[in-house]
């Protein structure tokens, strides 16, 4: 088990370095931060001096080697835009994103499982039809649009909630709902179909023939058997949220998380901040995957982790 985790961490490190290298090269190919940072009137000498100052005058392999060397001390270099260590910016913004994702996806998972089970207990009944209909609606709406509609209704018209920012807990509600809506729909649909499949399995008949009450059949026997499927999707939603959806949602709501910071860093040609963000997010995704594998092993002991 310990060896398994170590092996996975080692693989994960390679993946993260691969991703970082790709970003490292691509950011240097698509634009020159020197042009973005300095005014148009800057002289060639000034440009060269600035390039030298931030290390961009060196050949790419040398730059990457330096980057890796600094990485050993968690030094991602200075953010060009914020003029302070990139790592500091990342770790300042990351908790905001973590809060947003935890609230949005946590609520989605907590609601999706009971809704899916309720729908599955009477397939094609009136309650099921409402849940499936709402699910399809939730699946079909793009996040930026959901966000705008929510802002219009709850912030502009009803004035119940703030439009954007992060000053109070109330500011968390609309971005979290926007982020969690599509995952809620997908997780509900998956739970529903998985439970319907599961209820047709012979062991459910056995449990009922033993006289187990419906609550126990659903809540204990069936739930554990659908857990891996549901958590696989939940893990995927978590990864999607961290690697993309938060960018959209944080932008719409000016939520000061890592996604919004990534967009701003890219717009400003802040290579070092972009690298830091990509490295940290990739690392988190690797760790999520390992944690999910261990969780699956705990749920289903037949799964062999080696």
């Amino acid at each position: 088990m310990g060896r398994y985790v170590l092996a996975r961490l080692w693989q994960g490190l390679l993946v993260v370095l691969g991703v970082t290298l790709t970003v490292f090269v691509v950011t240097r190919l698509v634009g020159n931060p020197v042009d973005l940072m300095l005014p148009l009137s800057a002289s060639a000498e000034q440009r060269a001096a600035f390039a030298q100052q931030i290390g961009l005058d060196q050949p790419l392999p040398v730059q990457f080697a330096r980057f890796l060397g600094d990485l050993a001390t968690l030094d991602f270099g200075q953010s060009l835009w914020q003029r302070r260590p990139a790592a500091e910016v990342v770790f300042e913004r990351l908790p905001n994103t973590a809060l947003l994702v935890a609230a949005g996806l946590g609520a989605a998972l907590v609601l999706a499982v009971p809704l899916g089970i309720i729908a599955a207990t009477r397939p094609d009944g009136p309650v099921d039809r409402v849940i499936v209909g709402a699910g399809l609606l939730g699946l079909s709406m793009p996040q930026f649009w959901v966000g705008l509609i929510l802002i219009y209704v709850f912030a502009v018209q009803l004035k119940w909630l703030p439009t954007s920012g992060s000053a109070t807990w109330w500011h968390l509600v609309l971005p979290a709902v926007t982020l969690g809506l599509a995952p809620l729909a997908r997780l509900t649909m998956l739970t529903r179909s998985a439970v319907i499949d599961e209820l047709n399995k012979p062991y459910v008949k056995t449990a009922r023939a033993k006289g187990m009450p419906r609550r126990r059949v659903l809540g204990v026997h069936t739930l554990r058997n659908v857990a891996i499927g549901v958590l696989t999707l939940a893990g995927w939603e978590l990864i999607l949220a961290l690697s993309g959806y938060t960018v959209v949602v944080e932008t719409v709501f000016a939520w000061p998380g890592i996604g919004l910071t990534a967009i701003q860093a890219i717009q400003r040609g802040d290579l070092f901040l972009v690298q830091a963000i990509v490295f940290v997010i990739a690392g988190i995704i690797v760790i999520i995957n390992i944690a999910l594998d261990l969780l699956f092993k705990a749920i289903d002991p037949r799964i062999d982790v080696r």
């Binding site: 012979p202 062991y203 023939a209 289903d300």
Partner: peptide, 11 residues
């Protein structure tokens, strides 16, 4: 039941 392979909860 008939099929003891599937009539017990596998987990």
């Amino acid at each position: 039941f008939q099929d003891p392979m599937t009539s017990l909860n596998p987990l």
